[in-house]
């Protein structure tokens, strides 16, 4: 039985001035994995490589145990994709998109599509160009969810949307995950969304995965504390992951287990972890 919906082994891809990998990443079946990292870290490049939109320099990508290059048309019936933009000509109407998808996907379900279109208050006669960004994302999600996809891949799909729409989309993703064979890989800058929904967090930095961990373990492993300079001198240096200097001392992201128990610590958010790790590295370079 397959344990992973996506398996990436030693993936590398180089562009002028940027290099991704070697990257190893497994996305467990039945989970929502948040793929985070700063702009230009390589998130979209990874997702494009998974979808076969770019050609990796080396490495292997398997989706449901099959090589994407060899089985693309069959696999694409099982994958729903939502990009940050809707890549459908502006002149098409929603009902025409339905017809197009019916002719494209072997597993297209018109009833499901109409269900989502109605749920999102979209009209069949509306042209793509008349839709707002939020509505376009809802249409994109409707398409992704209407062909019996078992894996959803979302690339910055929630960025630029208002909190209500984002929340609605997250609810739908959580609904989708009620089926234990369904999996979601989502890259997002809005880490609070992932905080609510993700089972795992994979953190990409400068083209390399720094960690891929269960979200709950992650927030347990790390802690935030604010200490003066004198106290910091006495700490185990391995405990400090990142720091921010201020007038009275420093705010630290630390590894909880390596810290003395007497120090007061708080739970970090995923955003804290990401920012402190990146800043920590920059401070070290300085």
């Amino acid at each position: 039985m397959l344990n992973n919906a996506i398996e990436i082994n030693n993936l590398t891809k180089s562009y002028a001035g940027f290099s991704l990998g070697p990257l190893n990443l497994n996305v467990p079946m039945g989970c929502l994995v948040g793929y985070i990292g700063e702009n230009g870290a390589g998130k979209s490049t990874t997702l494009k490589a998974i979808l076969g939109l770019i050609h990796p320099d080396s490495g292997e990508i398997k989706i449901f145990g099959k090589n994407i290059k060899e089985h693309a048309p069959t696999l694409m019936n099982r994958i729903g994709v939502v990009f940050d933009t809707l890549n459908i000509p502006d002149e098409m109407k929603i009902k025409e998109v339905d017809k197009f998808c019916k002719l494209t996907f072997d597993t297209w379900e018109e009833v499901t599509f109409h269900h989502y279109v109605t749920r999102f208050n979209l009209q069949g006669e509306q042209k793509i160009k008349a839709l707002s960004r939020g509505m376009k994302m809802k249409l994109s999600l409707s398409i992704a969810l209407s062909h019996q996809a078992e894996l959803l891949i979302l690339d910055e799909a929630t960025s630029g949307l208002d909190p209500v729409v984002r929340d609605e989309i997250l609810d739908i993703l959580l609904d989708f995950l009620q089926d234990e064979t369904h999996t979601v890989l989502i890259s997002s800058h809005i880490l609070s969304d992932l905080e609510k929904a993700a089972d795992y967090i994979a953190f990409l930095h400068n083209g390399k995965i720094l960690f891929m961990e269960e979200k709950d373990m992650l927030v347990e492993r790390y802690a935030l504390c604010s200490l003066d300079h004198e106290l910091i001198q006495n700490l185990n240096p391995d405990a400090i992951v990142g720091k921010r200097k201020h007038a009275f001392g420093q705010d630290l992201l630390v590894i909880r287990d390596l810290m003395p128990t007497c120090i007061e610590m708080s739970k970090p958010s995923i955003e804290d972890i990401m920012v402190y790790i990146i800043k920590g590295e920059e401070n070290a370079e300085e």
Binding site: L51, G52, L53, A72, P73, T74, M76, N77, I79, V81, F83, T85, L86, N87, I88, P89, D90, E91, C101, T104, F105, D106
Partner: peptide, 18 residues
């Protein structure tokens, strides 16, 4: 030109279209 404007190929190749 319509396809370039909407970057349609990016969508098309995430469907079973070869």
């Amino acid at each position: 030109s319509k396809e370039t404007k909407s970057d349609f190929a990016k969508f098309a190749f995430t469907t079973p279209i070869t």
